[in-house]
């Protein structure tokens, strides 16, 4: 099963990566996906989206999902 992981803004710079495809054997948590994607610590303030919708860090991730990690937003 493949999951696409994306990092935005300062997280992209910190991880040195904007996108990575990772393989998982079964559905797992957002926190597990983070650990498979980067050696950085998952700060509780980091926001998570799955398939373009906000989710929390405890959410489950399934095959084919796009998981995005990003810092608090600052638009407008």
């Amino acid at each position: 099963m493949t999951v696409t992981v994306k990092f935005f803004a300062s997280l992209r710079e910190q991880t040195g990566c904007d996108r990575v495809d990772i393989t998982i054997e079964q559905s797992c948590s957002v926190k597990a996906i983070w650990k498979m994607s980067t050696s950085l610590t998952l700060d509780p303030h980091i926001l998570v989206a799955i398939n373009h919708a906000y989710r929390d860090q405890e959410s489950d991730v399934c095959d084919g999902d796009e998981v995005a990690f990003f810092p608090p937003v600052t638009g407008g």
């Binding site: 803004a9 990003f70 937003v73 600052t74 638009g75 407008g76």
Partner: peptide
Amino acid sequence: ILKHRAPFWKKERLIDRHRWVEKN
């Protein structure tokens, strides 16, 4: 609500460096 939910991030260029805007 836009300022707290819409996924936008600002990176400012100052005279001597860049920085990410961390809060509204």
